[in-house]
Amino acid sequence: MVETVRWLRENSLSMAFLVLFLLSVGGQAVAGLHDYNDQQLAQGLTPISFLAYVTSSSYAVDVAENWQSEYLQFFLFIMLTVWLVQKGSPESKEPHAAGAETDERQQIGPYSDEDSPKWARVKGPRLWLFSNSLGLVMGTIFVLSWLAQSVAGQAAYNSERLIDLRDPVSWGSYVTSAEFWNRSLQNWQSEMLAVLSMVALSIYLRQRGSPESKPVGAAHTSTGVEG
């Protein structure tokens, strides 16, 4: 019991966001079902069940659309912060540290210690792969989510076209259509604005105790320091 409580405390941030995610995705499914069935009734069609909705292209495209924009945000933030800096922001490295940094600073190869991950102590492809694993995984999830959105979006879009007695479109036609890019860009712009706000506002504003903020008494020009 003590070990369980300790584990939950040590992983409370991940667990809290997991619970919030499940509640959100479940709430989206319930609200989406009611909205979908309202549209079905308005068009003189038969409402569908909850199971039919959560396995439909309409639900899948809405979920995948949000996932791909979120992972695009994280991928870009991870990769751009290697080389780009913002003076005064805790979300940025110090200007002199821009770049991939030295082996010593990254604690790899001969500069690793006994607690370093095994692949940080080797050379060659394994070290490169581990050194770039976070960006690679985030980028891969973005691409897969984007593909899922495009496939589900095409199916949902064609379903609407068939109801209107219009011919369905191919995948290539859909991913180059205004419908697809309107859905994508309206999410991308909000993600980019959120990151910009976090980077810029954290220069001058504080949240005591948060690692995403500088210490309350830190100078506005302090860069790369966390509270």
Rank of each mutant, 00 (worst) to 15 (best):
A219T: 06
V30G: 00
I141M: 05
Y71R: 03
W128V: 09
N11I: 04
S58F: 09
Y71P: 03
L147E: 00
W181F: 03
S112T: 13
S56C: 01
W188E: 04
Q86K: 13
L205C: 12
W83G: 01
S116L: 00
T223D: 04
V2N: 15
E94S: 10
D167S: 14
S57W: 05
L76Q: 12
Q207C: 10
A152R: 04
R121Y: 06
A52K: 12
Q73S: 07
R183N: 10
V137N: 04
A100F: 14
D164H: 09
P110S: 11
F77H: 09
A31Y: 10
D115A: 15
V151G: 03
Y53I: 01
V122A: 12
E114Q: 12
V85G: 05
S210K: 11
Y174C: 09
S170Q: 11
P168W: 08
P90G: 11
Y59C: 04
S170H: 11
S49A: 08
A98M: 07
I163D: 02
L134F: 12
P95R: 13
V54M: 05
G153V: 01
P117C: 11
Q73C: 05
V195Y: 11
I48G: 03
I163F: 00
R6L: 00
N187G: 14
F17Y: 09
F75C: 03
P47C: 01
L33Q: 09
S150V: 06
E10Y: 07
L201A: 15
V195F: 11
A194F: 12
T221A: 12
M15I: 15
D115Y: 14
D167M: 08
A178I: 01
S24N: 13
W181C: 01
W146V: 10
V63M: 02
L18I: 10
L20P: 00
F142D: 01
K93Y: 11
R183I: 00
E65K: 09
A31L: 13
L20E: 02
E179Y: 06
D35V: 07
L127G: 02
P90Y: 11
Y157N: 06
G227I: 02
N11V: 03
G153K: 14
S14C: 04
H96A: 15
V2F: 13
L84E: 01
E91C: 07
M192T: 06
R105G: 14
S69R: 07
M1R: 13
I203E: 04
S58E: 08
V137W: 03
Y59Q: 07
P211M: 06
G139N: 06
K118I: 02
D38I: 03
I78S: 00
R161H: 07
L23W: 09
L41N: 10
L13G: 06
W128P: 00
S58I: 06
S213K: 07
P215L: 04
